[in-house]
Design a protein around this nucleic acid. Structure first.
Lengths: 140, 140
DNA sequence: ATAGCTGCAAATGCTTTGCAAGGCC
DNA sequence: GGCCTTGCAAAGCATTTGCAGCTAT
């Protein structure tokens, strides 16, 4: 949970992004940003909010995730065709995706070097490079 | 369109995969494999089939795409959370994804080298490594 | 006051499924 | 003949949207 100082910080970040610091947005940011980097789906964020006694609708969770993504407070990671993951780590990095758990793990971007990529076709702008290492966890 | 020799070849490949070489499957393979490597969605494959006067239901297109994927005749590429792309190129390679066109372009895997990836967590098996270079095409 | 938010429920879009009829070996 | 396939329509699921009521400034 956020302490008072963090609430103020987040209020400022939201205002700077042109978003009103509503209770729902502050509560969701608390879940997102007060436990280190996270990879979370809309459904899971909704559940965690409920567990903390926060009343938010799933529609608002989706709205918030997209608004945060537009505001560069969050990024969307496409690894699974059936659900969207949102990542609070905005630095350059890549991912392990553990397919049988639906779990993402960060790979620090500073460690990784990609060589030999052809340049983008004429006029095209590179928006980003995603490296996804797909894993299967042991049966236990 | 397939010629007779190619039809026989595909019949064999299907049988080897434990799939009966039905008209629908042969027609869809013709669209998939007789024009070089392709990246295609279920919807587009369905449309192209109709255009060639082949009667196939969308459900059968989906079934076929998944059966071909299980049989290693096709691979699924996850780049867009709202639709699935299927890739006929089974060799090692990566992709440009042109976001404003929904279009995939192959990057030969032999040219690309990735250094510095940490090893997978204990016991985890690497199923594959995907590199996706996200592009935006010029407005023109 | 008023522009922006929220929640609800309905709608959407892609994908999957159940099942009866048809096709392949 | 018997099992595999197909097509249709219905169902499923994650996500989006419309809109009336509420809230921050």
């Amino acid at each position: 949970m956020y302490d008072d100082r963090e609430i103020l910080l987040m209020k400022t970040r939201l205002r700077e992004a042109g978003l009103r610091p509503t209770n729902q947005r502050l509560a969701l940011s608390s879940i997102l940003y007060s436990q280190g980097n996270r990879h979370i789906t809309a459904e899971r964020l909704h559940i965690e909010a409920q567990e903390q006694g926060i009343r938010v609708s799933l529609a608002t969770v989706y709205n918030t995730l997209h608004q945060f993504t537009s505001a560069d407070l969050l990024r969307e990671v496409v690894v699974d065709s059936s659900r969207s993951y949102f990542d609070t780590n905005m630095g350059p990095h890549h991912h392990f995706f553990i397919e049988n758990k639906g779990e993402l793990v960060d790979i620090d971007g500073d460690d990784v070097e990609i060589r030999g990529l052809p340049s983008a076709p004429d006029g095209h702008v590179i928006k980003g490079i995603d490296v996804i290492v797909r894993l299967v966890a042991p049966k236990t």
